[in-house]
Amino acid sequence: MQDQPTPAEVIGAVAQFLKTQVVPGTSGALSFQARVAANALEMMQRELTLAPAEEAAEHARLKTLLGHDGDLVSLNTELSHRIAEGAMDLNTPGLADHLWATTLAKLAVDQPTYAAYRASLAERAPKA
């Protein structure tokens, strides 16, 4: 077992260092690139935190949709081929929900402030 603090915690600390020290302490292209680097690290921090549960759920959905097991890349490759061939489409039960859930999970890591993602979350939230 590797020790603590976790990769997500250390990566978060480096991102904070870049944001609070390097970005304000530099200017021009260097400052811009330091901010990009901080954002990239925060993205990886989100992935380390969120992806295990989301990918487990994606894997379970893919098994149901395709009717057999496999690793995540090969199941996605198969789904991709079936859609490309027209064997599956938005009328296939469960496909639209699967694509939405998978895509929302990607956005939660990649770009959680993206306006279309925020709008989709609000539109798709269960009505109270």
């Binding site: 895509t103 770009q111 993206y114 279309a116 989709s120």
Partner: peptide
Amino acid sequence: VERAVIARRTSENEIDLLRLL
């Protein structure tokens, strides 16, 4: 890093396509 981050913007288009289709 900039290239890597743009690569990770692919999913923005995936959600835009889902919203359109």
